[in-house]
Nucleic acid binder design. Sequence first.
DNA 1: ATGTCATATGACACACTTGTCATTTCGTTG
DNA 2: CAACGAAATGACAAGTGTGTCATATGACAT
Lengths: 196, 196
Amino acid sequence: MPKETFNNLSKDKKQKIFIAAVQEFSTRRFSEVSINQIVKTAGIPRGSFYQYFNDKEDIFLYVFTEILKEKQEILHSTEDVNPDADVFEVLMQTIRASYQWSRAKPEYSQISLLMEIDNSEFIIRLRTASANELRKMVERDKQRGLIKPEIDPDLVVEMIYSFIIKEYFWIGLGEDMFLKRINDIIKIIKEGIACV
Amino acid sequence: MPKETFNNLSKDKKQKIFIAAVQEFSTRRFSEVSINQIVKTAGIPRGSFYQYFNDKEDIFLYVFTEILKEKQEILHSTEDVNPDADVFEVLMQTIRASYQWSRAKPEYSQISLLMEIDNSEFIIRLRTASANELRKMVERDKQRGLIKPEIDPDLVVEMIYSFIIKEYFWIGLGEDMFLKRINDIIKIIKEGIACV
DNA sequence: ATGTCATATGACACACTTGTCATTTCGTTG
DNA sequence: CAACGAAATGACAAGTGTGTCATATGACAT
């Protein structure tokens, strides 16, 4: 995380650096990001950067946690979820909120997206199991008798997770199309595609 | 594709370069691959490389088509598929064969895998719609009344494709586990997870 | 043996990277 | 005002990488 010197900076300067970093991390994958580029767009001398951060990982960690903080604020503010809702309903609601966020801060969501398809040592270590909450929901619904007993919750979570992530690449489609696609996917996972 | 000079090389030397390239492309993503590294492991001088290939894309294209050729030979040799089989059955069979191939040539399949998660301009252009055949099968089964009429074949193909690809990262599990997981996934897509 | 021509070769020019460090600048405090 | 210390700065060393090119080599034809 940033050195003390960074925290002592003016809000303006901090913001300038943050924005430059976001721009870089949202267009290049981690291994391709150049600190040179960041300092150039931030308009600070190269030496200063190393006064503020140790290295690329350091600034990424900063940007990442900053974004996560913001996202969680937004997601939790919309938390008027019906406690009896099943996993499918909750999922749909979360994605809807998450979509709004992506629309409001496209660069931020682009960073998350790039992270998903990155397999640098460092990024892999970072990728948290945000899937955990989802798994718990699946397990709960299984006990409520809403989901077939032979289903492996981990597998379901993985499927949902991997597909929804991929779906975000389609975000350009526009809200209606995007949400319809997600809806269709969830329906397939719920009911299958074969005729009964 | 390779220059004439490369084709004139001895089989041995060609092989040596091919192997070095495979090694490099199977451990680093495209943008990170270094020609320096390739020539070093192949034991040829840097200048020679440029006598044989134009650049990184050039040699990748060569390696890629070479591997594809080999894979298709294997996949087609196992083509004793029942013409009445539904898409689920065919899928399972193809994956089984494909798994064998991955086991036999782990570096090759690693390259395919890396391609899937690569978003370099060049690689994206290359990624063929091998999904086409699958889509046709889904459409056929829809007309045969095996698949619900409201299902969008493209979406199904995408789902299958993205799950299965991701699943290949689990290939270390061993054949039984791997095939069981694939089987479970296909079953979910077919029948869903919700209780009826 | 001489000439020709395709190929082999590694030094070279250039462009990029990262992290360091001696120096300068500046604000605060005595 | 002086002096101290923290922060700013850009030149620097050392490491990547790419693609080119003049020259060396060697096989074959005359």
